[in-house]
Design a protein around this nucleic acid. Sequence first.
DNA 1: GTGGCTGCAAAATGTTTGCACGGAT
DNA 2: ATCCGTGCAAACATTTTGCAGCCAC
Lengths: 136, 136
Amino acid sequence: METRNTIQKQTILQAVKELANHPTAEQVYEKVVVKLPNISRATVYRNLSNMADRGLLQRIGVPGGADHYDHTLQVHYHVLCTHCGALEDIWLEKPAKNLMELANEKSTFSIQSYQLVFNGVCPCCEAKQRKENPIQ
Amino acid sequence: METRNTIQKQTILQAVKELANHPTAEQVYEKVVVKLPNISRATVYRNLSNMADRGLLQRIGVPGGADHYDHTLQVHYHVLCTHCGALEDIWLEKPAKNLMELANEKSTFSIQSYQLVFNGVCPCCEAKQRKENPIQ
DNA sequence: GTGGCTGCAAAATGTTTGCACGGAT
DNA sequence: ATCCGTGCAAACATTTTGCAGCCAC
């Protein structure tokens, strides 16, 4: 039950912190494999998942795509660029409590959490779009 | 570009309406294959996805799980039972506009939509839990 | 020394795609 | 007659799992 302090775990956690920008398991693997050439993807997946369950990381579930991981533990939200897949933070104060309360009032389920991802277009992709199709 | 009226499409749409309870593509397939024994899963996936894109159905993206489809077109939300996977409606009026506005104010992305799924325990599973572990 | 953790390969899951054929228009 | 939609199989993406050996404790 207690957790052993392996080099793999340390390196994975460090990688998420250094990458900062909500890496996927694959991106973490690519960063970690430089330092530990023999590490397996399974180890990366296992550890990221464990750490998220223990609250050392936040898991960002993206419907239809790979999970991302966030070293920031404070409650906040994310936008996904529908063009390039970039994922960015959004800091909102209000919805956190409201949503849970509202939902619990209206549902027979006892609601414990929720997953919210916004979809949009990042400034970079918006600029490209405008260049290709200046009308509209 | 215009859409042909095949038996497959008709049957798939009808199946989603009859199943009502937010079926996955696989569940739709199982319902449809009874009437059309030669239909392919690919056809079901393709048509569900197309119909969602055209606004004939709503796609409910569930992180880490299969997409569900909803024949109801009005804006509403969903809870997923973390025990049995049951998916149920939640009807909230307020958040719809608020969330989009708030997020757009706080982000450099131009946000067009969002995906929100609540996680909880359904009454049925809650009862089971209580039976197995009456303490707490 | 023990048993949790790792690496590997294989499997599982959900979905998409290339292609030849058939049917709706 | 066109050419979109279908069925099939294979590919794809992401994640999980079984198992033998290893290493942190």
